[in-house]
Amino acid sequence: MKVKKFLYSQKVAPYVFVLPFIISFTIFWIYPLISTVTMSFQSILPGQVEFVRLENYTKLLKDKAFHIAIKNSFTYMVWTLILLIPFPMLFAVLVDSNLVKASGFWKAVLYLPSLTSVVISGILFRLMFTEYPTSQMNKLLAFFGNEPMAWLKNGTTGMFALLLLACWRWTGVNMLYFLSGLKGIDASLYESAEIDGANGWEKFRYITIPLLKPTTIYVLTISVYAGLAMFLESYMLWAGNSSPKNIGLTIVGYLYKRGIEKNQLGYASAVGLVLLVIALIINIVQLILNGTFKKEER
């Protein structure tokens, strides 16, 4: 009887419901976060763990490979923002409008790539982008009368391959976010705008975009983090963590390289914390500028 009372108590119930989250959050997030901070001040080897104060961080300042990794991750993130927000939004609007027939089909086609495994699609992209004259991309170049090129040995073309993979995979997902945002816009707004004589563009500009803002901010926030934390795509495209002249090295790739491949977990923890700080700064600034933290006007 007591158990039943406990379970049905309105005071306890909320805590019971959030408990699984709190527990997993504490075990899998809070604890690792604290231990990462500690480890970033240590040198960690089997049987020899010692505090080295700021040594890991001062080394990071001088570490060129790390700077390349930051640059790569940052470039990748900026490009994914440019490519993966406006276009999916446009596609969502089109699919949602009467202009496109068989919209269900297009939704499915665009969404399908995100169901594939990055490991498999990464291998396929690698094969498409090999330097041999027989690879798809070089066949395509040959069709237009160009010489084959070593796609994955050059910074620009390597980044192009990464971005193509990202767009192929994520356009559909972001489109779905925007579609769900569009569903939340009241149709009567469009009707009254029509009565007032607004054309298609004006409706998009003055109704759709402002009312999609919460969705856009959400997509922006997760894209910033996803862009900075990208690892697997690069790992698969270059068949490992080593790309020529580090053109595909990302921050997380570098963390993996130092922590796992070179057995320097302390140094890798410092890399991870720098990533955390960068992502936090960008997102907080972005959220402040977007007015997310402002109290709603009444």
Partner: peptide, 17 residues
């Protein structure tokens, strides 16, 4: 492993992750 980690190992990494 295109960028083969090491000098010349007897076996280089495979592609699977």
């Amino acid at each position: 492993d295109a960028a083969g980690d090491d000098a010349a190992e007897e076996e280089v990494a495979e592609e699977s992750t």
